[in-house]
Design a protein around this nucleic acid. Sequence first.
DNA 1: ACATTCCGTAACCCGAGGGTTACGGTAATC
DNA 2: GATTACCGTAACCCTCGGGTTACGGAATGT
Lengths: 108, 108
Amino acid sequence: MADANRDPLDALGDPNRRAILRLLGASKRSVQEIASELPISRPAVSRHLRVLGEAGLVVDHRNGTRRVYELRDEGMLAVQRYLEQVWGDAAARFRLLAENTERTPDRD
Amino acid sequence: MADANRDPLDALGDPNRRAILRLLGASKRSVQEIASELPISRPAVSRHLRVLGEAGLVVDHRNGTRRVYELRDEGMLAVQRYLEQVWGDAAARFRLLAENTERTPDRD
DNA sequence: ACATTCCGTAACCCGAGGGTTACGGTAATC
DNA sequence: GATTACCGTAACCCTCGGGTTACGGAATGT
């Protein structure tokens, strides 16, 4: 999945995409699993996941016929940087702390 | 200005609104001043500012015929809470720090 | 080989939202 | 009182993004 130059805040501007991220925050999931928890079609979910991927918010791994998606920090950190740019010192302190506490990969 | 139940991430989903917030991050400004720095009309800016206000990201004060807008933390903190909800511990540590370092009101 | 499951993508539809101009109310100044 | 500056809002326009169904390729199991 290519990381296109899509702004993560553009991606976060849709409520269904935010709901998808909340699901993935709990555990990694396949497209089908995500779609079964939302009131939209599976192709719609697929489309949203593409947007989220291009924004650096998720990443996918093939598992047979399944594509399993999980969170990715890069897009989230870009959001933090925007907040720091706009809101200033408080956001800067926050960003440094977040980068020094990497999320462990055995999260699920 | 009423704080309606508008999600700040909805508000941040537009690039012109993000540009407005960046301008206000530098200093508080009137509608006209903001509009003169962006490639859109003054009524368009007015409309965006309304959205940002309802999302808790800005607040306005009357000053004669002018309405002067400045940043507000409430919406930004809601974004942080969403990030914490989704991305977890790192975001939680960040949020606690940000709340303990209030922005001083004599910012400009 | 065939059937089933999974999923990306094309094609189509349509409504939301972001653009505009015009209007009129408020405030300030002369 | 007249003029000017400021700004919210109405009305209109139209793009674009998010919804859908349909299709076909890949992977797996029988």
